[in-house]
Amino acid sequence: MSRTVLDLWVGFFVVIGAAALLFLSLKVGSFSGFNSSNTYVLQAPFDNIGGLKVRAPVKSAGVVVGRVAEIRFDPATYRAVVSFSVDARYAFPRDTIATILTSGLLGEQYVGLEPGGDVDMLGEGDTVMITQSAVVLEKLIGQFMFDRAAE
């Protein structure tokens, strides 16, 4: 086999391999992790985060605006502190409410942001003060049965 034919085949192979990688990165996957350069980080304390995981989406009005970056336990307040990065294009008022929601009945959990009406906006490192914890199904069912029993 002559060197040119060989080079041609290998060139073809590398090109379709690269095309496959491109297909995987553009069509199959998405660059969800916004570039850290144009995001800012917010924090929110929750009483209970339920099944929230790192990398879960942060949505406002159903649109993904960020991702959960870190979840830790604060031993001083006994609460969970969730840090999440938000796309720098979107600013939220200081009195925004952060809620942990579930998509569908058994779907994945995400952080929902409900904007308030404050004129001041949240900036890098700020804390969302008003939060609403996850709805824990077991508790809900327990409460429901308790209420029924009480009736």
């Binding site: 990165s25 996957g29 969800s32």
Partner: peptide, 12 residues
């Protein structure tokens, strides 16, 4: 749905 769930950095 595929695009929403598959992350470039994490999965690909």
């Amino acid at each position: 749905q595929m695009q929403a769930a598959v992350d470039f950095r994490y999965d690909v």
